[in-house]
Design a protein around this nucleic acid. Structure first.
Lengths: 336, 336
DNA sequence: TTGCGAAATGACAACGTTGTCATTTCGTTA
DNA sequence: TAACGAAATGACAACGTTGTCATTTCGCAA
């Protein structure tokens, strides 16, 4: 039957309806085994009838914790979906919900601001997803009582960080080229301000230098296929260009199309590797070899790191999630 | 100076430090104008020194609201990013944070379960993002005190719903073909269980039937380019096939590549339209005409709908966000 | 039946805020 | 200076839970 609920139903209401004390109702919820079965049933019945739902605020106030992890999205891009997915699944598994806020488009947000806003919300710890540099990165200090994990390729002086190993992934791709007999590798970057792009470039550079090769001038892209196409047109005219590493698959595809438009074959004339392994969704029979990062795993690790640090918020660790080279047919073996 | 904080700092601590009453501290936070400036400064100084941060639980308990909107992601896919972005921005603007939970991969989750879990969390209202059918869709009743908005193309008997106008978008694309002189339109669908795919198919069918055209058998795809390619191979052999509507851009691209591989030209021999307008990111100089949905707008509307309904949770409305046809060169005009 | 330890239940305070209402202080005018 | 109304501040209860500790009830052996 519909109950005339003018107000919210409290444990006290349930207690009265069931003819027991407030505390017994509490016990039915939190330690059911300590309540006699007949009593328990009576209480459950009363809860059902009245439509009782435990009050989150009162519970958290008493317990001193929320069971929520805050997530700050400084940037919400494509790869973010899988990461959120990982965070959310891991949270679920450990009995936490997520509280999310986002940097407003166009606005600037510092870590300090993010922390201040988060600490007004129901959170026991927090994750910052940071894909670009922020002004106060080095000086930021997390609240002492709120474990903070930053997802970023940069090391932070006091906070735990988690990241894909972007640099390592780029190095891996580069070495793959070199191991297949290529003497040099050209690079097409993403947007300048992107940390991912910067790290991928760094890894590319490092891999070449480690083998005593002078890295050629990188070509500037903007993540989209058209910018890759433009770069490809330039590269097609360079006789020494046998290998191109593009900072994502979209640009890699642009490069490939440009090369073909200029009469060159991939991989016979020029080999190409991209990042993120997304092209196969869009292009039938895609041949692009690509470095794939495990965003989902990244999210899981970030969440686990927060939860592990809840008791010791000032602990600090650094986690790198390695990438995987998905081999297809876009790289030619020049040996033999 | 570092303060020896064994415990959390409460308003009471601040009050004592500032030599004022508890209530005055409360006023400094909530109605600063009602406090004399000198007092206010003293309180602020004390808060600063002690590192005071208001306790969310206590505040919510007293106020009876949380300032958070719950978001349940039944499915977390590509387009979801923009939608979350819209939800988050709109929430921010109206002073709300988001509390998010997700259906675990592989698990089944009913609306009732989602509602039950959400009502244990700090939320004043909730948004369900539902892309596939669930068992209890028709029988579900939202908690009476928790405004619930479902993002889904289906109408719900008691809850407010918000959706892209998928059906209308498909109809629009179809009519665009017909208005350009095409006599029939073939359709490549996405995954069977996807509501988007179902709605797009429905719109396609409706548009043809409205002009007295018998819709041909739709081709079954799975959203990825390879399935579009397979469909394209089939379609290339149909002499009456001049127009293909694919349920997303990836499959549309697959279709186009297959047609070209079979020696047909797009758009000279066959015209193609896709959905989502994503191909230009991947393909340089993309010519694909595509129906684009405004996911961000969708999120904004959903959030606004929740907030608008906070005072009257049982109100019910239905919002459709129209799509936009992004014209490129993949449709040939057969008239004249 | 009585007595006993264990199990079940209850009374009450406390968590940290905000609302209500009473009290004090202030600035102004007589 | 006294008196007054308005502004500023304070005391106390209340929000709905859980922890502590006291009390009652139960099952079983003597």
């Amino acid at each position: 039957m519909a109950t005339m609920d003018k107000k919210n139903v409290s444990m006290n209401d349930v207690a009265i309806a069931a003819g027991v004390s407030l505390k017994t109702v509490s016990r039915v919820i939190n330690e059911p085994d300590s309540v006699r079965e007949s009593t328990r049933d009576r209480v459950h019945a009363a809860m059902e009838t009245l439509g009782f739902r435990a009050n989150f605020a009162a519970r958290s106030l008493k317990l001193g914790r929320y069971g929520c992890i805050g997530v700050v999205m400084f940037h919400l891009s494509g790869g973010a979906v899988d990461m959120i997915d990982g965070i959310a699944d891991a949270a679920e598994e450990r009995g936490f919900a997520l509280t999310m806020i986002k940097k407003r488009a166009g606005e600037k947000m510092t870590l300090a601001e993010a922390a201040r806003r988060m600490s007004q919300l129901p959170v026991d710890g927090m994750i910052f997803n940071l894909r670009q540099m922020v002004d106060d990165f080095d000086t930021f200090e997390a609240p002492k009582d709120l474990k903070t994990v930053i997802i970023t390729p940069m090391e932070h002086p006091t906070c735990s960080t988690v990241s894909d190993d972007q640099e390592g992934g780029a190095r891996m791709a580069c070495e793959y080229f070199l191991d297949h007999g290529h003497k040099n590798v050209y690079f097409v970057s993403g947007k300048k301000e992107s940390l991912s792009s910067q790290c991928r470039m760094k890894g590319w550079r490092a891999a070449l230098e480690a083998r005593g090769i002078e890295p050629p001038e990188p070509l500037q892209g903007d993540w989209n296929a058209d910018s890759g196409y433009a770069a490809g047109l330039v590269l097609a005219d360079k006789p020494d260009c046998t290998a191109v590493l593009a900072a994502n698959d979209y640009m890699a595809n642009g490069v490939m199309v440009a090369l073909r438009d200029k009469g060159l074959s991939v991989p016979d004339d020029v080999s190409v590797i991209g990042f993120d392994d997304e092209l196969y969704k869009t292009i039938p029979n895609s041949i692009l070899t690509s470095v794939k990062f495990r965003h989902r795993e990244l999210g899981i690790r970030a969440l686990n790191e927060v939860v592990a640090g809840l008791e010791a918020p000032s602990s600090r660790s650094r986690t790198l999630v390695s990438g995987v080279l998905v081999e297809r047919a876009s790289v030619r073996d020049l040996r033999a």
